[in-house]
């Protein structure tokens, strides 16, 4: 039942996108802000790494948000 780690991160990101897609304003900004605020660096890295290989399964808004998601190495 439990999804693989990468799949789980994709699912979580898509769930966040579903919310921000319904809000006024740019969903990508909202998604990236939410992920930067609540996701631990290795989760953000995991999403960025897996999406570097393929963005299949990721919602289009998440794909747009990827550029605004902070890498762990960057200062806060």
């Amino acid at each position: 039942m439990t999804a693989s780690p990468a799949k789980k991160l994709v699912k979580m990101a898509n769930q966040i996108a579903i919310f921000f897609d319904t809000q006024p304003g740019d969903p990508a900004t909202g998604i990236a802000h939410h992920i930067n605020e609540f996701w631990e660096p290795r989760m953000r890295e995991g999403l960025l790494d897996s999406s570097a290989t393929t963005t299949e399964g990721l919602s289009p808004s998440v794909v747009k948000a990827l550029a605004h998601i902070r890498r762990a190495t960057q200062p806060a």
Binding site: P5, K8, E37, W39, E40, P41, R42, M43, P75, A76
Partner: peptide, 19 residues
């Protein structure tokens, strides 16, 4: 640390992953 940490479900995921 200025970065957010792991939440309970994320801790368990990271444990299964080995980190």
């Amino acid at each position: 640390d200025a970065e957010p940490g792991l939440r309970i479900p994320n801790m368990l995921d990271a444990a299964v992953e080995g980190t």
